[in-house]
Write a protein that binds this DNA or RNA. Sequence first.
RNA 1: UGGGGUAUCGCCAAACGGUAAGGCACUGGACUCUGACUCCAGCAUCUCAAGGUUCGAAUCCUUGUACCCCAGCCA
Length: 567
Amino acid sequence: MENKENFEEKVNEAEEKETVSKNFIEMIIDKDLEEGKIKSIVTRFPPEPNGYLHIGHAKSILLNYGLTKKYGGKFNLRFDDTNPTKEKTEFVDSIIEDVKWIGGDFEDRLFFASDYFDQMYEAAVKLIKKGKAFVCDLTADEIREYRGTLTEPGKNSPYRDRSIEENLQLFEDMKAGKFADGSRVLRAKIDMASPNINMRDPVIYRVAKVPHHNTGDKWCIYPMYDFAHPIEDAIEGITHSICTLEFEDHRPLYDWVVRELEYEIPPKQIEFAKMYLTNVITGKRYIKKLVEEGIVDGWDDPRLVSISALRRRGYTPESIQMFMELCGVSKSQSSVDYAMLEYCIREDLKLKRPRIMAVLDPIKLVITNYPEGQIEHLEALNNQENEAMGVRQVPFGRELYIEREDFMIEPPKKYFRLFPGNEVRLMNAYFVTCTGYKTDEDGNVTEVQCTYDPETKSGSGFNARKVKGTIHWVAAQTTVKAEVRLYENIVDESKGVYNEDGSLNLNPNSITVLKECYIEPSIAGAKAPDSFQFLRQGFFCLDSKDSTPEKPVFNRIVSLKSSYKPE
RNA sequence: UGGGGUAUCGCCAAACGGUAAGGCACUGGACUCUGACUCCAGCAUCUCAAGGUUCGAAUCCUUGUACCCCAGCCA
């Protein structure tokens, strides 16, 4: 009796543990919903169009979008384009493409902060009228001096006590273009002695006679992030404005703006820790340099982790979504092992992609007892773990190519592949026994000779004897020639990311280009972004930039795991 | 030496006062027409440290320590 109860208790406990725990943001949302503060959630991804999106942005997109999927809310894409000196339409287009590709479905809710400039201007006027903002004539340097330091309070601007009327007039003049860039700014009137530097009368509007990618020359004054962002959020009815940790100090200012502007449903800023990945380069300065020096092939070089690079490398949106799910969300700064990303792409692709044979470093194998000129078509499963993917015919003949590393003249212990006298299985074909080999004058193996046993044909059910090794191959006559690019991490953290002089300690083997690879003919007709498992080697995709039907180029997305250790 | 954060396995990360989930990585073993996959087993007597409160502390209190962010008219 007692035992039975214990057992049931344990079962219940186990069931409880099945429920996935919520992250801290979901707890906040649950609470807000429960308390009736909001009826449903609205989130947003607010990039500034000043560059390409990378894996860190992917986390933000998927976090914000994922929350609205979970809670049945709405997700907006909003360009935070309040500084025309840094922004370009080119980036708007690439960001939209990347957000869609990664799976952030904003439906028809594509917005621009710049579309709210009128409302922001009105908001600024409202602050002035409340005596909560003033026009300041101090220069940028003077403002910095007046601001004080981390440990010393600042002091009030001499212009802080201008009358509301004068401020109103001056601000209107700023808008009318009567003042040069940098000559005057609008500042919030808060507290120059605040221990939080962001609260020391922050600048909220500046003059910049620069055309804007969206509003053209309509404006010559532009709002600052700290002022604009809460307004953008409020206008769109954002309930949870999720950003990264470095904005924690800005939250009091965010809340101040929301309060002074008296929004009915105040948006709430929540900060989470950025995603960092091991063994990758994300710094713009470094990437720019790598591009300029020709070390990488642009911002979408497959060794980089911009979204376009990941896409070109063969990562799928699903794999990246799985990755973000696995990583979780928290407030502790962390760096996720790149191996976790690799796990996700293998996991996503393993049942979805055909598994075919490709020889990357070919060496000829001649089956001396196989009829010359004969070509036989052998049936092969496209994916032995997913039979729905069907079968294909693979041509087999007397002359094949096998992987150079699958043959050794003098094998070490536990080497299961081909060596003189040893029998292995040619995958999808026959058992072959090595009978000899040829070398050139330097002793390099140029050809391996075997005999085959017709009884051992794949699928025949032959089981009179077994072999330890199975190797892949392609028939020499029908092969498709391709270039294959093998990638490794661009830096190795265990060896140090930086040299003593501050330059990057690059992995010299981050790319290996193999020009003469042979692939089974079923590959013909494939085009980017198609991807495949090359049996025993890894997952590969056609390169979207360089591959052509005449000269296919493959990128290695990720290798297969291997417990084989040579020696 | 101001303010704001964060510290739980090699790496992520749960646990919300009831006796340290899970994933990745790694290590064994089984299976195998991929040295893959899958399966099975192992992997924190302990939560930055030291005190304290409590029947009971990763969770509360005290005092420290380490790391991250902030002094743009950038976002």
